[in-house]
């Protein structure tokens, strides 16, 4: 079964039609990359999966967004619960002004878990999964701001992993990082897909090629082409896709 799916999804910011009839599905344990020029709707689309668009005023959505076959825009769905299943990592590393430990433990604490043993285990496990444990295990009590940008981003990934989501959304997770940190994040994504389903927005086409199994090309709010990354990058079916990935856009 598809892990994530959208069916004829339309989204409006006031009068602006930001997403037009987007239908696509993401299989479990794969990485789907969303690419397209700025303002094409890829970030907006990403944020429909954890209902982050709800925070913006005057947003209207119709169509279905399914997680494990269930509509997440159903009235019975509590967004807090949904967001525990669908973690998110942002463009700029944004650790909270707390210690490294507390950053990772935050998601558990706000969900009522304060048992020290459980927190300790979860913090270690999450930091190990995000390949940061060895670098920070001796300074968990230090402020998260003492870490480098790349480490901070991996900390943010650990923070998202701690609440044990099944899906991770990443909004240009490496665009603010140097090449070495970027490749670390990319390797991490490649590792994480064994356990998680990942949807990543990226401006960097090479990155989409390197990390994703499937690629979706968005343009002006529409899903132009969606398919295996290999296919999209070697033999795209749509001329617009070809123009975009070869850099001959416009």
């Amino acid at each position: 079964m598809n892990k994530l799916e959208s069916i004829d999804l339309n989204l409006y910011y006031s009068d602006f039609h930001a997403l037009k009839n987007v239908s696509m599905a993401v299989k479990a344990n794969t990485v789907a990359a969303l690419i397209g020029p700025s303002g094409c709707g890829k970030s907006t689309y990403l944020r429909t999966f954890n209902r982050m668009n709800d925070l913006i005023d005057n947003v209207k959505i119709d169509g279905g967004v399914l997680l494990d076959g269930k509509d997440i825009y159903d009235k019975a769905v509590v967004t807090d619960e949904l967001r525990k299943q669908v973690g998110m990592v942002f463009q700029k590393p944004n650790p909270f002004p707390k210690s490294i430990y507390e950053n990772v433990a935050y998601g558990l604490r706000v969900n009522g878990i304060n048992n020290k043993k459980i927190l300790d285990e979860s913090v270690e496990k999450s930091l190990q999964q995000s390949a940061l444990w060895d670098e920070v295990k001796d300074k968990l009590k230090k402020s998260a701001f003492e870490l480098s940008g790349g480490q901070q981003q991996r900390l943010c990934i650990a923070r998202a992993l701690a609440i044990e989501p099944t899906v991770i959304l990443m909004d240009e997770p490496a665009s603010a990082l140097d090449p070495i940190s970027t490749s670390k994040i990319e390797e991490l994504i490649y590792e994480l897909k064994k356990k998680y389903t990942i949807v990543i927005v990226t401006h960097n086409m090479q990155q989409a090629g390197r990390v994703s199994d499937y690629t979706a090309f968005f343009y002006m709010g529409s899903l132009i082409e969606y398919g295996e990354t290999k296919e999209i990058f070697t033999n795209p079916k749509n001329q617009q896709t070809q123009n975009y990935i070869t850099g001959r856009f416009g």
Binding site: Q206, G209, R210, T229, K230, F233, T234
Partner: peptide, 9 residues
């Protein structure tokens, strides 16, 4: 080879 060129740079 084609895939490695296209995807992995």
């Amino acid at each position: 080879c084609e895939n490695i060129f296209a995807l992995c740079n």
